[in-house]
Design a protein around this nucleic acid. Structure first.
Length: 404
RNA sequence: GGGCAGGUACUCAAGUGGCCAACGAGGGCAGACUGUAAAUCUGCUAGCUUAUGCUUUCGGAGGUUCGAAUCCUUCCCUGCCCA
């Protein structure tokens, strides 16, 4: 195990808040002296089954802890997901059933394992202890925190001031997350900066339960591919851990230039010297933004699909978007066997490129559809199945019509 | 329990009896321009056998009317004030 100073240097990298640092030093000293790993907690909200690069920021930090010999405790919030974390939401989230959260939790762990060391990861479900609490226990827990303290949280304050509803159960969310820390006896809890409040409640509640409070460590919230909102599945601006190499590459290329160094730091955990070199190159003009982005995209793809896939994704990207050729693999689509010819609208809808005929018509009339590379603006033009035409609908969707 | 203000399309938000499939903004999609960028400009943004046509939509259900998002009844939901 490394000494305390070395560990601390690594732990501090890329971090926004590390509070209180003295406490962490004390915990690390004790850990080194006794050879006992620290317990590093991360709560996962399984309401959305796909993990993306935004989650990966925190997961990579966890991995660093593991590489330093510590134990990661992943808490699948199957119980808390039923409550619905109000963080950053202007509205109450829909509640899920325990079964749904369980199913999502399982895929979560599988995806997180792409980054974490499974050997040093403990996975627990918080329904284990939260479901076991009696109403008396809950009231006692609620008695340890005040409404004024809860209202300190920014989004509660905002919602309260603007007259939006806040349900009582939402107040219980930070408390149940805090109770998780008690249950797993965490030494450090990680989260995004938006979790700071919840993490701090954990400290207070642990103290109330006569435990040594956890330290808290927050990581930046990564912006999505739109460059404005935080990365999230519901905003559809995310790069998923399970996205194909091609998609990862393409999505990365579509981020605004201003995000390049940020992604380098937080999506790749690139060495500070590398980040600096790119930042300098971009600002003095010696490095073309596109070149920097290509490099970034390859790094990201390489992390999840390997070096070779990254090179392939780059080649494919060049072919499709720069040379405007067809992609390597075009999915086939077949209409009913009895159909030998059909209109362009029907083909676009049938292949799933539009959700209604009106939408398909719009797409076609606006010049978004090409048949065998030629723009076709007539929705009613006839395609012959036997010709196996290749259709491009919009920027990203391609399909080839083949006989069934 | 009482009083007041609200609930309109993905979001915000106009509309208070016909000119409303519903102003405007954001978002999204497409086109132009580019570095598949960003910014900018243009168009589109309920559905249908594309029809100056029909169908469904303005919290839910009824009603008044030739005609309702708009008026009435009732129910549901939210916020504020008083208790």
């Amino acid at each position: 195990m490394k000494n305390v100073a070395d560990q601390l240097a690594i732990i501090r990298e890329h971090v926004v808040d590390l509070l209180p640092e003295e406490d962490l030093v004390r915990k690390l000293e004790r850990s080194v002296a006794t050879g006992t790993p620290l317990r590093i907690k991360l709560g996962l909200d399984p309401s959305r089954p796909d993990i993306h690069l935004g989650h990966a920021v925190v997961l990579r930090k966890l991995r660093q802890f593991q590489d330093l010999g510590h134990t990661v405790v992943l808490i699948i919030g199957d119980f808390t997901a039923m409550i619905g974390d109000p963080t950053g939401k202007s509205k109450t989230r829909p509640a899920l059933t325990l079964e749904e959260t369980r199913a999502n939790g399982a895929t979560y762990v599988e995806q997180a394992s792409r980054i974490l060391d499974r050997e040093r990861t403990e996975v627990v479900y918080n329904s284990q202890w939260l479901d076991a609490l009696s109403f008396k226990d809950v009231v006692a827990l609620a008695g340890k925190y005040t409404v004024a303290q809860l209202l300190e949280r920014d989004d509660f304050t905002k919602r309260y001031r603007s007259g939006e509803p806040i349900s009582v159960h939402e107040f219980l969310y930070p408390l149940s997350q805090a109770y998780d820390s008690v249950a797993v006896r965490s030494d450090v809890e990680l989260g995004g900066t938006d979790q700071k409040f919840n993490l701090l409640v954990g400290r207070e509640i642990m103290r109330q339960y006569a435990m040594e409070p956890q330290c808290i460590l927050t990581m930046p919230i990564l912006e999505g591919t739109d460059g404005i909102e935080k990365m999230s599945k519901s905003l559809d601006n995310y790069i998923g851990l399970t996205d194909s190499a091609k998609d990862m590459f393409g999505k990365t290329m579509s981020i605004p230039d201003t995000l390049i160094t940020r992604y380098l730091q937080y999506a790749c955990f690139a060495a500070p010297s590398d980040v600096q070199r790119v930042a300098d190159g971009l600002s003095d003009g010696s490095l073309h933004p596109r070149a920097a982005k290509v490099d970034l995209a390859q790094r990201i793809v390489a992390l999840y699909h390997g070096q070779e896939a990254a090179a392939d994704a780059f080649a494919e990207f060049e072919r499709i978007f720069v040379k405007k050729d067809q992609p390597d693999h075009i999915p086939d689509w077949s209409p009913e066997p009895s159909i030998t010819e059909l209109t362009l609208v029907d083909a676009v809808v049938g292949a799933g490129c539009a959700t209604s005929k009106s939408e398909a018509r719009r797409l076609i009339q606006q010049g978004g559809v090409r048949v065998n590379g030629v723009q076709n603006k007539d929705p009613l033009s006839i395609l012959t199945v036997a010709d196996q035409p290749v259709v491009r609908a919009g920027k990203l969707s391609w399909f080839r019509i083949i006989p069934a």
